[in-house]
Amino acid sequence: MTRQPLRLAILEAERTLAAAGVASPRTDAELLAAHLLGVERTKLMMVPLVDPPVVEALHDLVSRRAARVPLQHLTGHASLGAVTLSVGPGVFVPRPETELLLAWGESVLDGVERPVVVDLCTGSGALALALAHARPDAEVHAVEKDPTALSWARRNADQRAQAGDTPIRLYSGDVTDPRLFMELEGLVDLVVCNPPYVPDGTPVPPEVGDHDPHEAVFGGRDGLDVVRHVVGCAARLLRPGGGVAIEHDDTHGGSVPALLRARRVLTDVEDHTDLAGRPRFATARRTRPE
């Protein structure tokens, strides 16, 4: 059995993915090879030759990726901050853009002892678990209404707890319910949310349209159906000086900050861009008493 150069297999994979319209063909080809070999992507150069069955297995994975199955569904995981999460059919895959929102949330908690954190529309549990990892002293609550997504969040929460992170508190609930987290009203230091926000009918890549849950992506005619409730919930939950961060569509750079400013108790409203310079998330703070 003649061993084959891994470099050539990756070049072939890159060509296949590029022809299929995958946005980052080289990166995806290398990540699939690294996943298959059980090594870090940066260590691929240390594996010059591979057996033919490995090349075949890589070809199979690349074929599925060329059919626009999400990379994270093929590898079974995605990352946010310092945590790795299990993902697959039925749960929204965390995106790199959310890293900036996470960093802002961590900054709000600087100097706050034993902070209380709420993650609305938690999905896989990504933001809640990343914050719990960054702040082991935090009391983190996370809510999700979709049963399948909630089962992924529970799986991830169990894995992170086994890894030694502080356990989070997971709930089945709907952010549109005005009674949600009534026991936490006025007690929360940070509210974060990556809600469904894409306006209905907006064209999206096949990885999103065919694989992410529709209800986790689309947010009504203007994309703000859930966001409006998130703003109201955050205004109710935050303690004076607490902060809220809400991810949004790149067409919402004016509308989400406007929703935040419409709440008298919220101040310091700002919109933030992602690494590509597009409007990506809005933040505000709860007013302090005079």
Rank of each mutant, 00 (worst) to 15 (best):
F92A: 01
V198H: 12
V55F: 09
D222C: 05
T273A: 10
L17K: 02
A153T: 13
D119K: 14
T267Y: 04
Q162F: 01
P70H: 03
S172T: 07
M45C: 01
Q72Y: 00
W104Q: 04
A235Y: 02
L184N: 01
V208C: 08
R169V: 14
D200K: 04
V230K: 11
V226P: 02
A157L: 06
L44K: 03
A235W: 09
T75D: 01
N156P: 03
V54Y: 07
A216V: 07
K145R: 15
M45V: 10
G105Q: 10
S79I: 01
E40C: 01
R263I: 09
V116P: 04
R263W: 01
R261M: 09
E247D: 12
P240M: 05
L150Y: 15
G186C: 06
D274L: 10
A82L: 07
M46A: 14
E215T: 13
V112H: 03
D271W: 02
P199F: 00
V191S: 05
A235G: 09
I246C: 12
R95E: 04
L37G: 12
R236N: 11
G123R: 14
R154F: 11
S79M: 02
F92I: 00
R264M: 05
T148Y: 04
L259Q: 07
L100R: 15
H35I: 05
P178G: 04
A142R: 06
G253S: 08
V55M: 08
E144H: 04
L49I: 06
I10P: 07
V192E: 04
A149G: 15
L61M: 05
F281I: 00
F92T: 03
L224S: 01
G105Y: 04
V188K: 11
L100M: 10
L127M: 15
P167Y: 12
L101K: 11
V265H: 08
R154V: 04
S107V: 00
G164F: 03
G90Y: 15
V47M: 10
P196C: 09
G241K: 06
G253W: 05
L127H: 08
H133N: 13
S107Q: 15
E30D: 05
H73K: 08
N194W: 04
D249Q: 02
H77P: 02
A149D: 07
L259I: 01
M46W: 07
T148V: 15
F281C: 00
H214L: 09
D225L: 14
P167N: 02
V83Y: 08
L237G: 08
T98H: 08
M1H: 13
A284I: 03
E12Y: 00
H229Y: 11
V50Y: 14
H252L: 05
V217E: 11
R179K: 13
A78N: 11
A82T: 14
R7L: 12
D268K: 11
G123F: 05
A245V: 08
T202R: 05
G186F: 09
T202F: 07
H229T: 03
S24E: 10
G209L: 13
A103F: 01
T283K: 00
